Simulated assay, not measured.
Amino acid sequence: MSVNIKDVAKKAGVSISTVSRVLNNGKYVKPEVRLIVQQAIEDLNFVPNSIARSLVSKKTNLIGVIASDISTSFFSSTLSYIEEAASQNRYNILVGNIKDNLDKELKYLQVFKEMQVDGIIIMHEMMDKHIERFLQSLTTPTVFCSAKPNSSVNCPSVNIDDMQASYDTVKHLISLGHRRIAFIGGDTKELSTGRYRYDGYLKALVEAGISVNPDWVRFGNFKLQDGYDIMQTFLQSEQLPTVVFAVSDDMAVGALNCIVDHDLKVPDDISLVGFDDSSITETVRPKLTSLHQPIQQIGQMSVDILIKMIEGQSPGVKEVVLSHKLVERSSLRSLL
């Protein structure tokens, strides 16, 4: 026989409304009464009906997350911190892993709306006119995480200054005596991770009077295999770069594997720098120098801002820009 809220109220010796307030983390419940009700729930193995609760509270306690590709180190790490922050605030997450498929993104957004999620986090920038129109008409609180919406979509965002981060990294490489600097970029249709990081690379080279060698510039999709394949093309050029800067740690590790497979050494023959400072940087040998962005803070702040909006508060600022820094490890050497 299934246990219902009346059984919990009877065992705890309280009213049904008191049990309901405890279940919905409501106010005006004395701490000692809350403990008694929680003990009764545990003793009876009572599992609340989430649909019924949402009808009463007008909330589902669900957050929908659109991720570009959770197989990459950056997205999986960020998603983990989003889930942790959501859980601490009694929210569960639903993940739409779109793998850069805009039709899938639109489908997931529609599903999230139908399921009446309380809020949406989007970790992706590319959009077509259908997604743009959908987001413009959407009333569900929405935050862009490590991504920026285009000007027609009025949503707050949390990220770093990607162009400045890339510029600072390449400028540092130049200060170490590197002038033959190869670049493994991301899809330039993505402004932050693609276009802006490439622009930062170009700006640093131009300021230093270094010509851009087209043979040393290639673009991938943030995967290990992309880094490996692109590094193959660099190794076939007449003159090798002294350092390779990849805009994701996964692509940098792919490049590292390719270099090793060609019996070359990092950093003796070619230095290597990644981007994100994800956990993979410490697991490879040599350890990977990487541009650190505060992944945990990005995920947590995205959730914090979203919950403010869900509760009817102002998100505060439209764009949160967090700090970055280069973390040097043994994959980079000075030529001076």
Rank of each mutant, 00 (worst) to 15 (best):
K148N: 06
N101V: 08
I122C: 00
S157Y: 02
T281I: 12
L62R: 06
N25C: 13
E114V: 10
R180L: 03
Y228G: 05
T242I: 12
P48Q: 04
D162Q: 10
N150C: 09
S151N: 11
S80K: 14
S50E: 13
T142S: 04
Y28Q: 13
V111E: 14
K107H: 15
Q38W: 04
V56C: 06
S237T: 11
A165S: 10
K171W: 05
R329T: 01
I305Q: 06
L102Y: 07
I51A: 11
V8S: 03
L326M: 13
L272H: 08
Q110C: 01
S20C: 08
A12D: 01
V47Q: 13
L336S: 11
A182Y: 13
S237D: 00
K99D: 15
M1S: 13
L94E: 11
L272S: 10
R179N: 14
Y201H: 07
D103C: 03
H178K: 07
V321C: 10
E125M: 05
S334E: 10
H292P: 08
V29L: 08
M1G: 15
R179D: 13
K325I: 06
F245Q: 07
R333N: 04
G64W: 03
L335Y: 10
E83I: 11
R285C: 09
G220L: 02
I51K: 11
K223R: 14
L288W: 03
K99S: 11
C145Q: 02
F219Q: 05
E32G: 03
C145N: 07
H130C: 08
G119C: 03
S175K: 11
D277A: 05
L35I: 10
H130M: 10
Q164H: 13
I270R: 09
V303G: 08
E114P: 03
W216Y: 02
Q110W: 01
Q300R: 15
E207R: 07
R133D: 15
S2M: 14
S323P: 08
Q225P: 01
E238F: 05
V317P: 01
L138G: 06
S77F: 08
S323A: 14
S80T: 14
Q236G: 04
I310D: 11
S211N: 14
I16H: 14
K308F: 04
S87V: 05
A252Q: 00
Q88D: 15
F144K: 00
C145A: 13
I41F: 01
D118H: 03
A52Y: 02
K308Q: 15
V19T: 09
K308Y: 02
Q313V: 07
S68D: 09
K189H: 14
R179S: 14
K189Y: 12
S71G: 02
D226K: 08
E328R: 13
E105N: 06
V303H: 05
V321N: 11
Y196N: 14
R197S: 00
Y198V: 02
Y108S: 02
